[in-house]
């Protein structure tokens, strides 16, 4: 299936979870904010959120320092 991640269309296997998609990109889910179809998905929902064809996902990983 095709999903759009940070504006780029890409192929993903059916039913991939948000957690797995984030992890396979080498990102750390504990530092990532995810917006799925314009809605913020809280971190505790990442493992049970399954992506669907045509979903638009924005991922933002924070780095430390403040």
């Amino acid at each position: 299936m095709q999903v759009i991640v940070n504006g780029m269309s890409e192929s993903q296997h059916e039913d991939i979870t948000l957690h797995d998609l984030i992890s396979t990109r080498g990102l750390d889910p504990s530092r990532v904010v995810a917006e799925l179809n314009r809605e913020i998905v809280p971190g505790e929902e990442f493992p049970k959120t399954r992506l669907q064809e045509g979903d638009r996902l924005e991922l933002l990983q924070f780095v430390g320092g403040g």
Partner: peptide
């Protein structure tokens, strides 16, 4: 300072109407 707390704040504030200004890098 901590990225996990930045994330926590973003997830709490973004669904609200408040202006949210974060920093990273």
């Amino acid at each position: 300072d901590e990225p996990a707390v930045k994330k926590l704040l973003a997830e709490a504030m973004l669904p609200t109407a408040a202006l949210f200004v974060a920093a990273s890098g």
